[in-house]
Design a protein around this nucleic acid. Structure first.
Lengths: 110, 110
DNA sequence: ATCCTCCTGTAGACCTTCTAGAGGAGAGCC
DNA sequence: GGCTCTCCTCTAGAAGGTCTACAGGAGGAT
């Protein structure tokens, strides 16, 4: 099954992006591919979600961007996590855990 | 920690409501209280999310509603799952499992 | 030259939730 | 009778993230 970004979550996309960038500095296109690969094709971001999200995160000071050149010798914008981004990611991950546990409790109702 | 409905998810509210109603027919107010109770206060729905969601689910044919009287002798609208609602709930729950597993894979990146 | 892939970007629509209200009606108390 | 509290439903408009559907530049291969 393939899930669209909107199928089940909102705000989770930010966490996914930040987590991917934390592991390794990447450009936007690469982030989307990495998420798709790691999730075994379950998670597929489209460009209309990806780039607005990246700009939003940069505007919030959670990511820093600079132009560079990709492995394929293309012009690309590379992102890295700021300190605030790292802190924010920690909080969001914690919220995610609490939230999914709470949902599980509902789903396990008799 | 208390999570607002919007904190992390979109569309999940529908699943939560349907799951709660499946276990026991309830009125809207009761559904919100039950979700809060079962999730140990982590999940708190406000009325501006609850009632639009109930109406939406009814309009989609996933819930049926009828007026009745609550345990406290108040006028209340009771909901029950339709066959389509039951089927829809099954699909959404399956998507939820697949989605959370995929997110976990991202969160466990080296 | 031409085409494909890589890579970034935007506008407008859509949908869900939030904020911030309104209001009716039963129950308990003075 | 009047007052207040809780129960219970409901809505309008705003806010915010994602989707659809584009545009476009530039490198590499044929």
């Amino acid at each position: 099954m393939v899930l669209q970004t909107s199928d089940l979550f909102l705000g989770t996309l930010d966490m996914l992006i930040l987590r991917t960038v934390r592991a390794e500095h990447m450009h936007g296109w690469g982030i989307a591919q990495r998420i798709q690969l790691v999730s075994k094709d379950v998670l597929q971001l489209n460009q209309g979600s990806l780039y607005p999200a990246l700009h939003r995160l940069r505007d919030k000071g959670l990511l820093e961007a600079k132009w560079g050149v990709s492995e394929n010798n293309r012009r690309a914008k590379f992102y890295r996590l700021t300190d605030r981004g790292r802190e924010y990611l920690g909080h969001e991950t914690e919220k995610w855990r609490i939230f999914t546990q709470a949902v599980e409790q509902i789903l396990q109702l008799a």
